[in-house]
Design a protein around this nucleic acid. Structure first.
Length: 826
DNA sequence: ATCATAACGCTTTTT
DNA sequence: GCGTTATGAT
């Protein structure tokens, strides 16, 4: 009996001793870290320190195993051990119970960015041994498993990975050959139908059978495409993104040996952003974690914004049902935003029905109420944002502290105009991605075709690029021969002289085949980066680009690709062409925000998930834009939009501006929309609106009431600095004629504001009225608010200048135009 | 084969 | 309003 009592005290003391390692966490966070065994659902609100918990949890697992969460007491334990633990003298040998080996921990994320961040923070926390942890994305985890065992389900281990544009190219061909009208059956739609089928684990045959039964002709066409699409991928020894997950699930379900191997292998499985998982990913996770059942999922049902690409919020809502005995911990303390911002966000998300229910709180203080500005039109809106940013910078903030969020990428245009005009440096995140650029696709297609001669898709892309006189007619002939003989294009091309039909172009074809062989040989014997140069030259690609402005931008991008190759060579143990192809197939997100740059960040609300900024501007707060037109009338879609709104609002740390325009051009048509219903959902106490802002109500069917739409605001006063419409028009013309790098080259341009080419002048001249103060580095100035200071640096900007001034021990950055009136030279 | 013009049709996006 | 794409003309 004494022993029982002793055991209880021992366990308590052990947990208490382990807790001291995590004393910096709040109670809920610590609970999450110390709960190691069995299924655990972690509902982590925005800004609640989720990643910190994840890191600490892994540290705990490696250091103490299940020490904090089990009843085990060693037989040799005695009273002095408890004393040791209570006095803080106990080490891991006493506190730990089966500490976990790093490589038995699987931490799955969604994006490479998240995986990289996790790895970096684990390295800081644990050092070298952290590198054995399986911290990676769903897809890279699957690639790792499939590269080892995919032959067990009838694929070749050296498979290539097709990205979505590859998939689209294949599907376009398939649809054409099946004589489907592109208007009725856009390749994108067919692919998403197939994606859904894979999500439900339907093979082409299953899908076809189901379609037959349903008498739905559309489904039957989809099924035909699926069959043909799959056939082509298989022939090219390729798999698409969905296949990576699908085939891994198939492998694990069908092959008991492999399944049990991984189930024994992984002792702890953690999944980040669980609200974004699909049914298939749910299956994958439950297969991988099926052994020890130590599955910890982290997510926020209120931040699920990716339903359109297959995510089911159900996964998180029914976690406790799927995993009986699961524990749930909510992290609701927010360390990011002030109370008014959280109040607004909480108020909006409360209107959703399908949620677990969470309420963020903070003890960071009330802060300022979010502000609503009702603009005349999009130019006024952009001007407003620009002015507030300049004010903020005058007040000592950096440009990078400000973010502008919008619903669709197209909205960035007007803001860019305004920012350029005002000399505000900015960076647009998203839009055209690096690996989608034509020149990058071209060269990676060469790399893929060199590595895998059977990759017909990539071969077709490069065979006549640069032009080699191999035209469409020739290619058609080659393809029909290949299809009749059931061989790959490259093998037909290599033997072109044996086919009478190819007599005329055989010389060109053989020359191309020889080129590819030569490149393959080079790839074998050269280091990757040298081979890359060789490829650019021997293929004639570089030469064919020419030397105009657009070509130079493309060449820049190709140099960027080379630096990627070099970075890969440095990071990989044994760099190979195959390895690099794997990496770029999964790593498309290279234009990550470089934190060193001092730019205003512009992006969609989707892209902003997981980020935070002191100042946040949300533009286009209008019904029809946000929430989007397509979601109005559908309550499920509306809830998703509302979650997106919640995500957007919770990005702000200090100041939040919501901007709506009375009139705006959408898709070339002028329309006036009502202020977003989400604004109405924020109570007066948490939002500052202009006077006379009418609030409008909706019926339960999302129908706007019959109030005329222009009447929400009567008449707002215009301050002079907001500018007038005609002035803005004129300015924009000038802007266009100057060219700013040329709009035509926009596709290849990195859309980032570049400083004027001239070297920074030490003196700011007075370019035009109103005259700017003439200042030089080293001048003493007196500022109304900050007192006396010394000018440290001056950066000229169109029509203005950014001045750094040392006031006492504080350095402030001021825009001269704005700050000039508060400052005098002394 | 390559350029010019017209017609269309548009969320959100990672891997 | 803009970018992509299909079609026809040279």
């Amino acid at each position: 009996m004494d022993r029982e009592d002793f055991k209880k005290r021992f366990i308590k003391a052990r947990r208490a001793a382990i807790e001291t390692d995590f004393s910096r966490l709040n109670d809920m966070q610590r609970e999450a870290v110390l709960t190691t065994e069995g299924p655990l659902l972690l509902l982590a609100g925005a800004g609640s320190g989720k990643t910190t918990v994840l890191i600490n949890r892994i540290v705990n697992l490696i250091r103490y195993g299940r020490g904090s969460d089990c009843d085990f007491v060693p037989d040799w334990a005695e009273e002095s051990d408890i004393e040791a633990m209570e006095s803080g003298r106990a080490g891991a040998d006493l506190l730990g119970v089966e500490p976990c080996e790093p490589w038995r921990i699987l931490a799955i994320t969604f994006t490479n960015k998240a995986a990289d961040e996790l790895k970096a923070r684990l390295l800081t926390a644990l050092g070298e041994e952290s590198q054995d942890i399986w911290a990676m994305t769903f897809h890279s985890c699957c690639v790792r498993i499939l590269r080892r065992h995919i032959d067990l389900i009838g694929y070749d281990k050296s498979f290539t990975i097709y990205d979505s544009s590859d998939s689209q190219a294949v599907m376009k061909r398939v649809a054409k050959e099946l004589e489907l009208d592109e208007k009725m059956f856009p390749p994108k739609l067919i692919l998403s139908a197939i994606s859904r089928a894979k999500d439900e684990m339907l093979s082409p045959e299953d899908f076809a059978a189901a379609a037959e039964k349903s008498f739905d002709s559309k489904q039957r066409h989809y099924a035909r495409c699926y069959v043909e699409y799959e056939k082509r991928l298989k022939a090219a020894n390729a798999v698409d993104f969905d296949d990576l997950i699908f085939l891994t699930v198939r492998l694990l379900s069908e092959n008991r040996e492999v399944r049990e191997y991984y189930q024994r292998f992984f002792r702890y499985v953690l999944v980040d952003e669980y609200q974004d998982t699909s049914i298939l990913q749910y299956k994958l996770v439950s297969l991988l974690a099926g052994g020890c059942n130590n599955l910890c999922v982290v997510g926020d049902d209120d931040q699920s914004i990716y339903k359109f690409r297959g995510a089911t919020i159900e996964n998180i809502l029914s976690f406790e049902k799927s995993y009986p005995g699961a524990r749930t911990i909510k992290l609701e303390q927010n360390y990011r935003s002030t109370a008014h911002i959280l109040g607004a966000a909480n108020a909006v998300i409360r209107n959703n029905l399908g949620r677990k229910g969470k309420e963020l709180w903070t003890n960071a203080g009330d802060g300022e109420r979010p502000k609503l500005y009702v603009a005349m039109n999009e130019d006024d809106e952009a001007q407003f944002v620009a002015n507030r940013i300049l004010e903020a910078v005058s007040g000592g903030m950096n440009f990078r502290d400000c973010a502008v969020l919008y619903r669709m990428n197209a909205q960035s245009n007007r803001l860019e105009y305004a920012f350029k005009r005002q000399g505000i440096p900015y960076k647009v995140v998203g839009g055209m991605r690096f690996f989608d650029r034509a020149e990058i696709k071209d060269i990676t297609s060469y790399l893929a075709a060199v590595h895998n001669p059977d990759d017909d898709l990539r071969l077709l892309r490069i065979i006549n690029n640069p032009p080699r006189g191999i035209g469409a007619a020739t290619i058609e002939t080659v393809r029909s021969i290949a299809s009749v003989e059931g061989r790959s294009l490259s093998s037909v091309i290599a033997n072109a002289d044996r086919y009478p039909e190819l007599k005329t172009p055989s010389k060109k074809l053989l020359k191309f085949a020889a080129l590819m062989d030569e490149l393959r040989e080079s790839a074998e014997k050269m280091p990757l980066d040298d081979f890359y140069d060789e490829l650019l030259n021997k293929s004639g690609y570089l030469e064919s680009l020419g030397t105009n402005d657009e070509a130079l931008a493309r060449i820049d991008n190709l140099k960027e690709l080379k630096s990627n190759i070099i970075a890969y060579m440095e990071s990989a143990e044994t760099p190979t062409l195959a390895g690099f192809l794997d990496e770029i197939a999964l790593y498309t997100d290279l234009d990550s925000v470089e934190s060193g740059d001092n730019n205003v960040i512009m992006m969609t609300m989707h892209a902003a998930k997981g980020l935070e900024f002191p100042y946040v501007f949300i533009v286009g707060m209008e019904d029809g834009i946000f929430p989007s037109l397509r979601s109005i009338g559908d309550s499920e879609e509306m809830e998703e939009e509302r979650r997106l709104c919640y995500v957007a609002l919770t990005r702000a740390k200090e100041k939040l501006f919501l901007i709506a325009a009375k009139q705006r051009m959408i898709f070339g048509k002028t329309s006036s929309n009502m202020i977003s219903r989400f604004v109405d959902e924020i109570p007066e106490e948490h939002i500052e609106k202009p006077e006379n802002t009418y609030s409008h109500r909706y019926s339960a069917w999302d129908e706007p009431d019959d109030e005329p739409s222009y009447s929400w605001q009567r008449r707002e006063k215009r301050t002079p600095d907001e500018g007038t419409y005609s002035w803005q028009r004129r300015e924009r013309r000038t802007d266009e004629s100057v060219g700013y790098g040329g709009w035509s080259a926009r596709k290849t341009e990195v859309r980032q504001y570049k400083k004027p080419v001239e070297a920074p002048k030490k003196t700011v001249e007075t370019p035009k009225a109103p005259a700017l103060m003439a200042l030089e580095v080293g001048d003493r100035v007196k500022h109304k608010a900050f007192g006396e200071g010394t000018v440290l640096a001056i950066t000229p900007m169109p029509g203005d200048a950014l001045v750094s001034v040392q006031f006492g021990d504080k350095e402030k950055k001021l825009m001269l135009k704005t700050a000039g009136s508060f400052m005098t030279k002394i």
